[in-house]
Design a binder for these strands. Structure first.
Lengths: 211, 211
DNA sequence: TTCCCTTTAAGTATTTATACCCATCAGTTT
DNA sequence: AAACTGATGGGTATAAATACTTAAAGGGAA
């Protein structure tokens, strides 16, 4: 079993690696410390299971998962989450993530989750599900308030928030400036924004980009 | 060396325990998953070093450290922190914490910190200090180099972040659109931004506007 | 008072962004 | 097979933002 760990905290990653490596037949075959690194790594090599953190610099787990699964639907991703990140649950499930584990789990539960997901199933932390049922109302609110972006749109939204003009974005993505304009118009429409400032604020409020 | 780990995430705690236990002469002699548990444990038993997380349920690391050190000033506590928690640094130092480590550290740095603190010194993560100095510099620059905004500029920056165009801003403030353009150009220059997106990000990062 | 800075505003030009229209192509879904 | 969606990009047009210039009025400081 070859596992890829994606988390920005070295200590956590190294610790989890030791825990996993002690299980016979399970091996951490790769590590990444943010979403971008993760995407690069899965392009180069295949992994049986990916354990993915949510909050990370550069590119967060949600966006990374969306892009990754769009590239390869057979990816088996288990999300690692902390209390208070339940709001991302539905986004991740929609993206095609196969498991959801609290960082509060013990190594036995991690092993169970890996096994289940490896065999093609899904595993959602018991504790997390109970917690979510408590906060069901909040989840519903955030469901209606969060929009779906295509991978391309997310990509462009990020670049906009980095201060890139349509021209520059086009050059970076090897597409026409006109296409960028079109995507941008769609973003404005979807987010109900009048202009760039509105759009940037939206992206930050909805945790689509990180400061 | 008997170490007490305090962190609410089982996986992180277990992982760090494994990492520490592999160092000859170092042993995790106790674990607690929140501030209250931690306080109970140090009443019952003595530990050489305490590694303390900040964000925890029941009682967080800051409050717990204050209480603990008030009870026993000889306690040797090293705080474990994530990026973005630098704001707690001075509170923790004031409370009497002896070390500050990023969860991004490697096990070698953890060992160094433990050694230094055990011998009666203090250890503050290099990376953390650099990060704090950067923020300090920014504050200083903004104070000394007149990177402050005039009242009018602030007013206009706020309206920009609400998605207003120059035209609209002019109408709201009863001034010419051209004047707004001028202020806006000054804002771009002062903040070293290329465009609106840049400017909005700057405003949010520097807490000039609130979301 | 003189000097500096802010605020005000206009001239001129270029670059970007926004708003519609349209079409093609590749996938997916139904 | 037909319908739908996302990504691509062209046409045309206007609105908005950016760049660089000048300049006048008023307040506060040296």
């Amino acid at each position: 079993m070859r596992i890829l760990l994606v988390d920005d905290h070295n200590l956590f990653r190294n610790g989890l690696k030791m825990l996993i490596d002690t299980i016979p037949g399970y091996r951490v075959a790769g590590e990444a410390s943010n979403g971008k690194e993760f995407l690069e790594m899965i392009l180069k090599e295949k992994y049986d299971i990916i354990m993915l953190d949510i909050e990370m610099p550069e590119l967060n787990g949600i966006e990374a998962a969306k892009i990754a699964i769009q590239m390869d639907k057979s990816l088996k991703i288990i999300t690692l989450t902390m209390y208070g990140e339940e709001e991302y649950f539905d986004q991740m499930v929609k993206a095609g993530v196969k498991g959801f584990l609290l960082k509060n789990s013990d190594i036995q539960e991690v092993k169970t989750a890996i096994d289940v997901v490896y065999l093609g199933g899904t595993y959602y932390s018991q504790e997390l599900m109970q917690n979510m049922l408590k906060n069901l109302k909040q989840v519903n609110v955030s469901k209606t308030n969060t929009l779906e972006f295509s991978a391309r749109e997310s990509e462009i939204l990020h670049l906009i928030c980095e201060g890139c003009s349509n021209q520059i974005i086009g050059e970076k993505l090897f597409i026409s400036k006109r296409t960028v304009e079109k995507h941008r118009a769609n973003l404005l429409f979807k987010t109900n924004s009048k202009n760039t400032a509105d759009l940037v604020i939206y992206a930050i409020k909805n945790h689509i980009v990180t400061l």
